[in-house]
């Protein structure tokens, strides 16, 4: 197990970062830090994908000088997935930030726990 983890250090780092991001998003009471956690989590997945998609000594999948041999280039699909993932991540971040802004205007705090106490004090109708 140990040597494998060291050999695949990109993947190991990606998993550790995923864990950090996940716990931050889950447990951190500060909403902005939650969004930062979300971005760490997403980036960890992109790092994992990029590391998996890269083959040592091969080129980016853009045909240059007419070389069409399959062995010259890496597989473009993981990079495509990373791009799609980034687009999704950006939109999710934008939505969460705008929601947080609205909440801050309403309750003047970024702390989730404080917001929830204020909401429950409001009572419901």
């Amino acid at each position: 197990m140990g040597p494998n983890l060291l050999n695949n250090y990109f993947e190991t780092a990606a998993m550790i970062l995923f864990g950090i991001g996940f716990t931050t998003l889950f447990l951190q009471p500060n909403l902005i830090k939650k969004v930062i956690g979300l971005n760490i989590m997403d980036s960890a997945i992109y790092l994992f994908l990029a590391a998996k998609g890269y083959i040592d000594g091969r080129l980016a999948p853009i045909v240059v000088n007419g070389v069409t041999d399959m062995e010259t280039y890496i597989n473009p699909i993981p990079s495509g997935l990373v791009l799609t993932g980034i687009v999704v991540g950006v939109s999710v971040t934008a939505v969460s930030l705008s929601l947080i802004q609205k909440l801050y205007k309403e309750y003047h705090t970024l702390d989730m726990d404080e917001i929830l106490t204020k909401v429950s004090k409001e009572g419901d109708h």
């Binding site: 939650k34 969460s96 929601l99 929830l116 909401v119 409001e122």
Partner: peptide, 12 residues
């Protein structure tokens, strides 16, 4: 405020 705080919990 109520629906937005519910939304953010749902979103997270």
């Amino acid at each position: 405020g109520k629906t937005i705080s519910a939304t953010i919990r749902y979103l997270i």
